[in-house]
Structure formats: C-alpha cells, structure tokens
C-alpha cells in the first residue's frame, strides 16, 4: 500500500459540509469515475455490456441509472460510471478489462469534484445556476450544463438530492457559486 495521503478538491484533509436554510451542501470525495465510450460498430454490444454491469439498462440520453454502480449519459454512446472510491479505486482498469474491447474506458475519478445538495427547495438553487429546467426534474435526470462558466454535470438523484460534478481544479469557484446561490435563494 502506498503512503500518499489524498486531499479533497477544496484542498483540505476532510470533505467540507455547509448548511444554509433547508439545503446541505457536501463535498463528496468517495466517488470513482470512469468514462465508457462505445467502440465504432460496437454500440449495441457496449450498451448491452454496460447494462449487465449496472444491472439496469444503460441510461438513455440525459439520464442516470444503476444499482451498486450507477452511470449517467455523457454523449452519444458515451457514459460516466460512478462507484464508491473506497471499494472501486481501480474502477477504470477493471471496467476496461471487463469491456472486452467493445468500449474505451478512461479514468475520470479525479478530473471532477463532486458536490451534493440535499434538502428542500433545490430547484430554487439550481434555477439560479444553470439553464436546465430543474423544476421539471423528478429524479433520474443528468445534464451537462454550465454553472458560472464551468462545464458541469447536474445529476438529479431525487428532487431532494442533486449531485454536481465540476472541473476539479475549479472546485473552489464552484463551491463558492453554490454557497452564494444557496444564500440568495433561501
């Protein structure tokens, strides 16, 4: 086992948690990510394999789904697989092996920072952040959008629980935007 100690995207030893009004904002570090992109001509096989891996059908455009592993749609024939980091640090190489050549897999764990927002009135927060129709979200939506000039994924687990993935290097700016808007909206 190596002896290097990880820091969080916000640059601290422990993830940060902020609460304002009904909303709790949590920095989430226990997420391993791997992108899965179907090889040319293997789109159906890739979708089928991903479905088997997830235990549910590979998500349709702008959707998220899964059981132990979850995945959200990123683009045509491309998904991002999410798993607990603690148990799946080697998610990308593991999936690459399992994919058997039907998909290209790329480690994305540390390309992103993740912030989860939980509580009531999340639509009030997100409608000030990005041009996504968050008020219509019922759970299961996943859109890539812009939050204060940052390309982010917005994942609606339930209307009371959203995840935001943003570029890890801008975690501070993204966190600031989320916090400012929480105070503005609530």
């Amino acid at each position: 086992m190596h002896d290097l100690v990880a820091i969080t995207p916000l640059g601290a030893a422990e993830p940060r948690v902020d609460t304002h009004g009904p909303v709790t904002l949590s920095e989430i570090t226990d997420t391993a990510l791997a992108s899965v992109a179907a090889r040319l001509g293997q789109e159906e096989q890739a979708r089928a394999w991903l479905g088997t891996t997830l235990g549910v059908a590979a998500p349709d455009p702008a959707r998220v789904g899964g059981k132990d592993l979850t995945a959200f749609w990123m683009g045509p024939d491309q998904w991002m697989v999410e798993a607990p980091y603690r148990t799946h640090e080697m998610l990308a190489p593991d999936l690459a092996r399992q994919a058997g050549g039907v998909a290209s897999v790329t480690e994305q764990s540390d390309a992103w920072c993740r912030f989860d927002l939980a509580g009531d009135g999340l639509a009030d927060v997100f409608e000030r952040l990005c041009p996504a129709d968050v008020r219509s979200f019922k759970g299961g939506e996943a859109v890539r959008t812009s939050i204060d000039h940052l390309g982010c994924f917005l994942i609606c687990r339930t209307p009371e629980h959203f995840s935001v993935y943003g570029p890890r290097s801008s975690a501070g700016s993204l966190h600031h935007a989320l916090l400012v808007v929480m105070r503005s909206a609530h």
């Binding site: 040319l40 491309q78 290209s104 790329t106 540390d110 390309a111 890890r168 290097s169």
Partner: peptide
Amino acid sequence: PDMDVQLISTTEAWA
C-alpha cells in the same frame, strides 16, 4: 465520422 476513435479530456484527472 467512421474512424473508430474516442476522445475525452483527462487534464484534471492527473497531477
């Protein structure tokens, strides 16, 4: 459009 090639940025994934 019919090259078998997949692209993704990994700039931030690696220090």
